[in-house]
Design a protein around this nucleic acid. Structure first.
Lengths: 243, 243
DNA sequence: CGAGGTGTTGAACTTGGTCAAAAGTCGTGG
DNA sequence: CCACGACTTTTGACCAAGTTCAACACCTCG
C-alpha cells in the first residue's frame, strides 16, 4: 500500500503498529473514480458505507428548505468521509466531487474490527471526529455574527490549514478548485458577495487572486482579524490507551 | 448510583453490562454545585476534565472577535460535557451554568479505561459525539441562509427533541430557562430580533409564550417549515461490536 | 465555434442590527 | 411586606450589510 495518504495522515498523529496498519489497509481495498461535479451519494440513503479520499477534492452538503445548498465539509486526499454518519442509519448529507478524483468505499462494519482490535486507533478516530466537530463550531462562530470579509478570510485560512496536514511546507500560495458560488454555499453568502469580499480583500493587500487559486499575502494579519485557530496541526494523543 | 441520569440516558441506547455500568459509575463519583450564571471553565484552560451534568442546564460558548458570545451547546441533565475537547490539549469553549445545577467532573484519562475495557461503550461514546456533530451541522444549515423565524423555530424544536430523550412523554409545553439574549447568542440574532420573531410566531398561532416557557401549538407545521430532523431519538447501534 | 459554467458590476430592495427608552419581573434586604 | 436594583422584554426609528435581479465579459472544453 505504497501511496496511501490515509496511512500517511494517520501515521502523522500516532505511531502505527503492524496490526493498525493492516486494519487501515483494509479500508482502502476498493477504489472508484468520479468526474468533477459527480454526485457520490444523496441525502437519506443508507449510511452503511464510509469512504477514504484517494485523490481529488470532494465535499458534503445539505439542502436548505428554500432550495439552497449548504456545504458542510470539504474532503481532501487522505480524509475519511462519513464519520459523522456513523451514528445514524441514513445519511444526513450528500457527497459530491469538486474535482475529478477517486474514493475508496468501505463498510461501516469495518469499524467494528477497529474498535475491538485497536483501542488506540479507536481513540484516534474518535479524536478525528472531534476535530471535525471543532471545525463546524468555528464555522458557526464565524457565520453567525461576522461580516462577509471575515467569513471569507476564515474560510481561506481553514483550507490552507487543512492542506498543510499533508503538505507541511505549503506557503501562502495554493490552488483553489472551488467556484465562488461554492465558497458562498460553505459560509452562507451569495457568489456575488464572495466576489465583492475578495475584491476588497485584494484592495487591502491581504490576498492576490490568480487563475486557479489565491495567494495569502499577509496570513498573520488575516489570522488576527478572525481569531483563527488551527484545529488540524496537533491532536492531543496524551490520554490515548497504551498500545 | 440510584438517581444517575447518565446511566439512564446511556442505557436507553444499549443494554449495559455490569462492567459498563461500573465504568460509568466512576464518572459520577464527585459532584460540585453551581449557581445560575456561574462560569465553570474558561476558554484556553487545560482540557483535562470532562463533566456529567447531574442537575440543571449548562451551556458552552465561544467568544467572537467583536466581543459577542456564540453559544454552541446546551447541556441537559445526563449529558456528558466536553467530549469535543477530547482531541485538544486546551478547551476551545467556555462552560457556564444557565440555571442552578450540579456537575460531576472526571478526568480525561478515565476515557482510557472505557476504550480499553469496553469496545461497545467506546462505540456509543463515539456515536454520541457524532450526534453533537449533526446538531452543529443542522445549526449551520439553519443559521447560514434562513430567516429569523426559521432560526427560532429550529432552536425550539431542537430543545424539545433534546428534552424528550429523558422525558419521552413531553408534550409541546415546557419550561425554557434561557433569556432571549441567550437564544439569540445561540442562533446568531440579537435579543431584539428574537423578541420580534417570537411575537410574530405567536401571531401565526405556532407558539404561545408564558411566564417561564413556551407552548408549541403546531409542532408539525414548525417541523415542516424548517425541515426539522430529530437527531436524538435513535442512534444506529447496529454496527456496534458484539459485547 | 458555441455552450455552459464562472466572475464582475450596478441598482433597488430587504432583513436584521443598533440605539434608546419604557415597562415588566424577580430576588434580596430592610 | 414592601422597596430597591438588576436583569429582561418590548417597541420604535433609523441604518447598514448582504440579497436579488440583470447584464455582460471570460474562459474552457466539447
Amino acid at each position: 500500500m505504497a501511496g496511501s495518504c490515509l496511512i500517511e495522515k494517520i501515521g502523522y498523529h500516532i505511531p502505527l503498529s503492524a496490526t493498525d496498519a493492516a486494519l487501515l489497509a483494509r479500508l482502502e481495498e476498493q477504489e472508484e473514480p468520479f468526474r468533477a461535479r459527480a454526485t457520490v451519494r444523496d441525502i437519506g440513503q443508507p449510511a452503511d458505507r464510509l469512504f477514504v479520499v484517494r485523490a481529488g477534492w470532494f465535499f458534503s452538503y445539505m439542502i436548505l428548505p428554500n432550495g439552497g445548498r449548504q456545504i458542510m465539509h470539504i474532503h481532501y486526499p487522505g480524509d475519511i468521509v462519513g464519520i459523522p454518519d456513523v451514528a445514524f442509519a441514513r445519511t444526513s448529507a450528500a457527497l459530491a466531487a469538486a474535482t475529478p478524483g477517486r474514493l475508496c468505499p468501505f463498510p461501516k462494519s469495518a469499524l467494528d474490527e477497529v474498535f475491538i482490535r485497536s483501542p488506540r486507533l479507536s481513540a484516534l478516530l474518535f479524536s478525528i471526529g472531534m476535530v471535525e466537530h471543532a471545525v463546524l463550531a468555528d464555522r458557526i462562530r464565524i457565520i453567525s455574527r461576522m461580516g462577509a470579509e471575515a467569513r471569507v478570510t476564515h474560510f481561506l485560512l481553514e483550507v490552507v490549514s487543512r492542506l498543510r496536514v499533508t503538505r507541511r511546507d505549503l506557503q501562502g500560495h495554493f490552488e483553489l478548485p472551488l467556484s465562488q458560488g461554492m465558497i458562498g454555499d460553505a459560509i452562507g453568502l451569495t457568489n456575488v458577495y464572495v466576489s465583492r469580499a475578495l475584491k476588497r480583500m485584494q484592495g487591502d493587500g491581504l490576498i492576490r487572486k490568480h487563475a486557479h487559486g489565491i495567494d495569502l499575502l499577509d496570513e498573520d494579519e488575516m489570522k488576527k482579524r478572525v481569531d483563527f485557530e488551527d484545529r488540524h496541526f496537533k491532536i492531543d494523543t496524551s490520554w490515548f490507551p497504551g498500545s
